[in-house]
């Protein structure tokens, strides 16, 4: 066998091995998806999606309040966590070439790998116990926000670092102040990465269970109040799996399916939104375009 054939053989072996690993990695993913769809789909009905849990396991009850609760929890968490995370990322990337930046970066990495139950404990100690709010929507949102912050900060920093330095210098050389350069040039060019990071964080926290157990707790009722306990999809799954009732078990699978679909729609929705926004700003530009070409 000459060297060329030997090299070809090695190449085939290596790429074959890589393909095998890809398939191996995909098997659990596809298996879980199939399992959730198969076991969860029979639970789907209008009642299931809109009625509240009574927890008795009688037919005809739903997970409506849990869906609503998860949406509320994630919404408030994003409200708290996204601005803090994005601003932290901006600071570390644009102004963090100093000791403070290094420290922030270090603690971000630590926090990103923190066990979420510990974050739940922290939110419990702070909001539930110390501020004496009790188990509540706001305590849950604070816990989820703390989990979001390092994820968002890291992806924002990464996205801004990907923007070529020449653009930063180009703007500064035009006499644009530093903060405007960051806002209008760096953020505009890193937008896709930042939005992806935010989505990643939202997707990650919408499935968090442990911290909610210690903060938002659980409720069988509809609730809007930030200071009352609230239901959530992950906790509904957790609670129902512990019950012997077949109906409740099926509801758990149904809730799992809803959770997956929720994350998926969120993802696709934001992508579509970004696309249509790009089109709209182009339409605005068309106006001055016609204005000037008339002159020309």
């Amino acid at each position: 066998m000459n060297t060329y054939e030997y090299r070809k053989l090695k190449n085939t072996l290596a790429s074959g091995l890589a393909l095998a690993c890809v398939i191996l990695a995909l098997i659990p993913l596809i298996y879980i998806l199939a399992e959730v769809v198969m076991k969860g789909a029979p639970a789907m009905s209008w009642e299931f999606l809109t009625r509240r849990t009574t927890g008795t396991g009688e037919p005809g009850e739903g997970i409506g309040n849990a869906i609503f609760g998860t949406l509320l929890l994630v919404f408030y968490a994003a409200l708290i966590g996204l601005p803090i995370g994005i601003l932290t990322g901006i600071y570390v990337s644009e102004y963090g070439n100093n000791k403070l930046g290094t420290i922030v970066r270090f603690f971000n990495d630590v926090l990103a790998n923190f066990p979420s139950i510990v974050v739940g404990l922290l939110a419990y100690a702070l909001v539930v116990a110390y501020l004496n709010v009790g188990f509540s929507l706001i305590a849950g949102s604070v816990a989820l926000a703390i989990i979001m912050i390092p994820i968002v900060a890291n992806t924002t920093e990464e996205a801004l670092r990907m923007v070529p330095n020449s653009l930063r210098e180009g703007a500064l050389a035009l006499g644009v102040p530093r903060w405007r350069t960051v806002l209008k040039v760096m953020l505009a060019n890193g937008r896709a990465g930042i939005v992806t990071g935010a989505l990643l964080a939202v997707a990650r926290v919408s499935g968090e269970t442990a911290p909610l157990l210690l903060t938002a707790f659980y409720s069988s009722y509809w609730s809007l109040s930030p200071t009352e306990p609230i239901a959530s999809l992950p906790l509904t799954i957790f609670r129902n799996f512990n019950s012997p009732s077949e109906v409740l078990l099926q509801q758990a699978w149904g809730a799992a399916l809803v959770l997956i679909l929720l994350v998926l729609t969120l993802n696709i929705g934001v992508r579509l939104l970004m696309k249509s926004k790009a089109k709209k700003s182009k339409a605005v530009k068309m106006k001055w375009m016609t204005r000037l070409s008339r002159k020309a």
Partner: peptide, 21 residues
């Protein structure tokens, strides 16, 4: 290296200094 802002149109690039201010 030419470094026009890729997220901006030709028009916006020219007036970037003014608009950003």
């Amino acid at each position: 290296k030419p470094n026009p802002f890729p997220t901006m149109s030709i028009y916006d690039n020219v007036v970037a200094g003014m608009r950003l201010n």
